[in-house]
């Protein structure tokens, strides 16, 4: 492991003992992809973090009406949101199970689990779309209230990230098809799973935010200094 502070204190002009020279470990494509994934997660994390911060800031203006709290607000009853969430949890879990199967070199089970993950992800996306329809039928249009705007915006951006994940997964599947062996993709699959878990986490945060009562939101906003 790199210890950043120690590294930064090295005096590079002093010639070093030769065993220190081969510091760079053997690197394979997956290791590089893992680093890249960490940065992707950081970028996506910052993106959603900023959305959430603006949500909290915007919530402190008088025209903001949270989507939960009062009985007539759609997310006071969270059962529908939980249903959608359960699809995404299942997708994440199937993805994880797929990795374990791949590590045990059980080809068919891997294919089965990953297919299930794709299925549940797509199901989640459709469920979210249906939720959009449901809300707009109830009269919660995108521009009637900033809370509505945020709901559509956040779910859309989150959904697009899942679609991106599906595309990468599809690319991976086509590669597996070519070599006809799942062991080769166990490691890249691990990265996909990390991405899925991360997006599940992001969704849980968004869920909590959208389903929070005005009091909770106000308290959070106050903590952030708005």
């Amino acid at each position: 492991m790199i210890r950043p502070l120690q590294t930064l204190r090295q005096k590079p002009w002093l010639t070093q003992a030769s065993e220190q020279l081969n510091l760079i470990p053997e690197v394979d494509s997956v290791a590089a992809a893992r680093i890249a994934l960490r940065f992707i997660l950081a970028v996506v994390g910052v993106l959603f973090f900023l959305f959430v911060i603006t949500y909290l800031a915007r919530s402190q203006y008088p025209d903001f009406q949270s989507l939960a709290g009062a009985p007539w607000q759609p997310f006071t009853d969270t059962s529908r949101l939980w249903l959608n969430t359960s699809f995404l949890i299942l997708a994440s879990a199937a993805m994880q199970a797929g990795i374990w199967s791949a590590q045990q070199e059980r080809q068919n089970r891997t294919i089965g689990f990953v297919s299930a993950a794709v299925f549940f992800t797509v199901l989640f996306l459709f469920a979210q779309l249906q939720l959009w329809q449901q809300l707009s039928q109830l009269g919660f249009y995108i521009s009637t209230n900033p809370a509505n705007s945020y709901f559509y915006l956040l779910t859309a951006v989150h959904g697009l990230h899942l679609v991106g994940g599906l595309i990468v997964l599809g690319y991976l599947a086509s590669k597996t098809w070519a070599v006809d062996s799942v062991t080769a993709i166990a490691k890249p699959l691990q990265l996909c799973a990390t991405y899925w878990h991360f997006l599940l986490g992001v969704w849980m945060v968004l869920f909590a935010l959208l389903a929070s009562s005005p009091q909770t939101i106000n308290a959070l906003a106050a903590m952030c200094g708005f």
Binding site: I2, T7, L8, Q10, K11, P12, Q20, L21, N22, L23, I24, V27, A31, A32, I35
Partner: peptide, 12 residues
Amino acid sequence: LQARTHGMTLMR
């Protein structure tokens, strides 16, 4: 981070 050649430490 990943593709530095042999001996190319960060501080070099």
